[in-house]
Design a protein around this nucleic acid. Sequence first.
DNA 1: AACTAATTGTCTTTTTTTTAGACAATAAAA
DNA 2: TTTTATTGTCTAAAAAAAAGACAATTAGTT
Lengths: 241, 241
Amino acid sequence: MEKIDIGKFIAHLSIDCVIFGYKDKELKVLISKFKFGKGTWMLPGGHVLKTEGIDKAASRVLKDRTGLENIYLEQFRVFGDENRIVNSEHKAIMKADLIAYDERFDEEVTEWITSRFISVGYYALVDIHKVNPKNGFFDEYLEWRSINDIPQMNYDHNEILTYGLEALRQNLDRKLIGFNLLPETFTIKEIQELYEAVYDRPFARNNFQKKILDLNVLERLEKKFTGAQNKAPYLYRFIRN
Amino acid sequence: MEKIDIGKFIAHLSIDCVIFGYKDKELKVLISKFKFGKGTWMLPGGHVLKTEGIDKAASRVLKDRTGLENIYLEQFRVFGDENRIVNSEHKAIMKADLIAYDERFDEEVTEWITSRFISVGYYALVDIHKVNPKNGFFDEYLEWRSINDIPQMNYDHNEILTYGLEALRQNLDRKLIGFNLLPETFTIKEIQELYEAVYDRPFARNNFQKKILDLNVLERLEKKFTGAQNKAPYLYRFIRN
DNA sequence: AACTAATTGTCTTTTTTTTAGACAATAAAA
DNA sequence: TTTTATTGTCTAAAAAAAAGACAATTAGTT
């Protein structure tokens, strides 16, 4: 298990990731809790090395949790009012993980982890089927939860999630990013259901099909025979350039 | 002149403000340069006190420069890759301003101001006629420059400005914030010219008038007689709530 | 093999929104 | 009184979005 050396990281600054996935017609979020203590839920997060860019730090956080690289990542907001103080449970666990921790430096470490943090919020879009959550890393347990079934989380993480979802909605069709949540091939209906999950509202089937095909970013493949007693839909693939 | 005590501030974190104003049919930005040295241009910025929220810090930066409070402020992005290192001129000036500076702590101070900074970008909208730029504060000289006449600035400040303008454009009519750039009363034509300056494109007069009036956020006041040989336009005021 | 149920793919029609065109109503100068 | 320049509004045209309609399939049922 990796440890944190506080000296290498920028103090007072953290990163929180809203990792979105899509499965069973539901938008999911990967959340974590520590294996010890009461186990309060949190968004997967991390700190920024003094020698790395923040986007790089966010990628690292993501790779540590999901094993995936080259994931769609978007920074959406900075959080952190003056009341955002690390709470006792989190503090105890952080301390235990600090290799720099030493009785001699107790004061410094305490100051570091107790002080107010400013957090940069990122959201990531992943193909949920490719992810194998690395449980155990950093003593945390990861779980995919439906956007409609998010528990109370630590700090202002529920608020961060709300902002992240809002950012996703604003970017979804404007930036053509939705395909990052889907497998390589999919039917029109599946994209529509994804859109309905993200926006939490229905779309008219006929018009949605036209709109999505008029974007000219989909390549039609073979038909998908499901065994259902109806016309088999075509499979499509997203064309990158 | 105020001084900085580095101990009170969060290290590695700064705030940069894109302060927008509107005058002579042009969108303006308030930029600054130090009175000493070569005088490289920069966006007005500052640091975050360990005891204050970032929005509060941004307000403070704004008040220090413009004297204004309760200004429309919006955070739009975080900047800061690993290459963003304080350059020598800026460093020299910062050192001179640090009251905490002392030969004994030379190393600490140098580390503080030399290290990489992560910067939170804010944009502000102000009625340019209310602003009296506080030249001399923090040894800087302030100047309103047209968006089409922005000089090369320090660090990645030109890039930050570009992102700030993009954020302004995205929010302008969606959020009804444009009125923050105008005086209390104005004609329809004046709002239209503001929109044209922000989006850098013309709008059809007849349709713009309809669109803006259909928002039902303007109160019609008396006519404005300019002395021009044509029908006098009405003055309007923005209704809050 | 014919019939039925459950979609899908694609049109056409309707409605709404956006854009363009037209013109009377000023205000002040000639 | 006539002319010039621009404003406030209306109507017409064009484009986009939403709703409606229906043939084409797939596989189960009779």
